[in-house]
Design a protein around this nucleic acid. Structure first.
Lengths: 196, 196
DNA sequence: AGTTTTATTAAACACTGTTCAAATTGGGGG
DNA sequence: CCCCCAATTTGAACAGTGTTTAATAAAACT
C-alpha cells in the first residue's frame, strides 16, 4: 500500500537497535523474532533486512554496546584502586561478577548465547573484552607474585573461566547480586588464596 | 495408507532414544527436528508424540543416561583412591573435567542447553548429579581441612561452578582433553591451593 | 465374531528467518 | 519545472520448525 514512508519517519539503525535491545533483553535471543521487532516499529519484516544483513548482525550490533560498558567497568576498577596489589585484583573480579549479575540478560546475550552463524560477529567483541581483563589482571599479578608472563597467560585465562562459571550459573537464577554477594566474595577469596 | 505397522516392527521408546541420541549428539538440540528423527526411523512425525509428550521429554529421557554415566565416574573416583585426602579431591575434579571434554556434546546437552519448557525435566538429573559431587568432595574436605559442614556447603558449590566454567568453555572448542590436560591441572591446583 | 484398545498417519496450525520483485517516495540534474 | 534514478519499504513467498487431531487399521480381548 505505502511502499515508502515520509523521510522524517524513515527507519534508522539506531531506532531499530533501540527496539531490538528492549525485546532481546526482555525475552532473550531465541524468543525475539524479526517480525516482532518490525511490528513494534510499525514496519514490515523485510525492512529490517535493508538495514542489517540478518538477525545475527542486528543482534551483535546491539551487544557491542554492552561489551563497551563492561570494558568501561574494568577500566574503572583499575583506575579507582590506587596501587596494583591484591585489593585491585579483588575489585576487578568483583566488578566482573557484579556486572554479570546486575545485567543478567546482557551478560547472557554477550557470552552465553550461541547460534549458528553468530560466532563470526561476536568473537571480536569477546576477545576485546577479555584482553582488557587480561591486561588489568596481569599488572596486578606481576606485582603480587612476580611470575613470568608466560605462566600468567594460562593462570589469568583459568581465572577468567572460573569467574565465568560462577556468573553463568546465577544469570539463570532470580537472585540479585546482593543476594549472593557473600558467595561471590567466597569465590574470589578462594581464587586469591590459590594465587598466593 | 498404513496406519499401523506389524507388531514386530512397532516403534519402541528404546528405538526412538537410540536414533535420537545419535542425532542429538551429532547436531545438538536445536538442529535436530522431530521430523528428522521420525524420518530416520521410517515413521511419521506424529508417532513420536505417542511415545513422548514433547521434544523436551524425549530429549531429557536421553540425557538421563548420560547423567548416570557421570555419576558412575564420580563413584569410581571415590572408590579408586584409597583414602579421602588431597589426592582423591584432585581425582574427583579431574574426572569431572575429563568427562566433560571426552563427551563434549553430552556435557553440553546435560548442562548447557536451556530451552523453554526443558527445565522441568532436567532439573532433577542435575541436582542428583551435583549431590554425588557434593558428598564425595565433602568427605575429602572434612579430612583435609576440618571446617564445619555449613561452610563446606558454600565452598563445594563454588568449586563446582569453577570447574563448570572451565569445562563449559572447552566444550565449544575443538581441543581434546589431552590437548588441555596441563591447563586443567593448573586450574585444579589453583583451586586446591585456595582450599588449604 | 465383535468390540475395544493401541499405534500410526497425514494434514493442518501457527510460528520462524530470509529473499525478492514490485512499488512509491524524495532528491538531483537538465 | 520535470523527469529519472536511487533509496527505501512492502507483502508475498519459501522452506523450515514443534505440536495437535481426526481418521484408520492392526492387535488384543471377550
Amino acid at each position: 500500500m505505502t511502499p515508502r514512508k515520509a523521510v522524517e519517519h524513515e527507519l534508522s539503525r539506531e531506532r531499530i537497535l533501540e527496539v531490538a535491545r528492549e525485546q532481546f533483553v526482555q525475552h532473550g535471543y531465541r524468543d525475539v523474532s524479526m517480525r516482532g521487532i518490525a511490528k513494534e516499529l510499525g514496519y514490515s519484516p523485510g525492512s529490517l533486512y535493508y538495514h542489517f544483513r540478518e538477525k545475527a548482525d542486528l543482534f551483535s550490533a546491539m551487544t557491542a554496546e554492552d561489551f563497551s560498558q563492561l570494558d568501561g567497568l574494568l577500566e574503572e576498577a583499575v583506575s579507582t584502586s590506587p596501587n596494583p596489589g591484591r585489593d585491585r585484583l579483588e575489585l576487578i573480579f568483583l566488578s566482573f561478577i557484579r556486572f554479570g549479575l546486575e545485567n543478567k540478560r546482557s551478560f547472557e546475550l554477550m557470552f552465553l548465547i550461541q547460534e549458528p552463524g553468530l560466532d563470526c560477529y561476536t568473537t571480536q567483541s569477546k576477545m576485546g573484552s577479555y584482553e582488557k581483563f587480561f591486561i588489568a589482571v596481569n599488572e596486578s599479578l606481576q606485582v603480587i607474585n612476580n611470575t613470568d608472563l608466560a605462566k600468567n597467560v594460562e593462570l589469568i585465562w583459568v581465572l577468567f573461566l572460573s569467574l565465568h562459571g560462577f556468573v553463568s550459573f546465577y544469570i539463570h537464577s532470580d537472585q540479585s547480586f546482593d543476594d549472593i554477594a557473600k558467595l561471590a566474595d567466597l569465590h574470589i577469596q578462594l581464587l586469591l588464596r590459590g594465587l598466593m
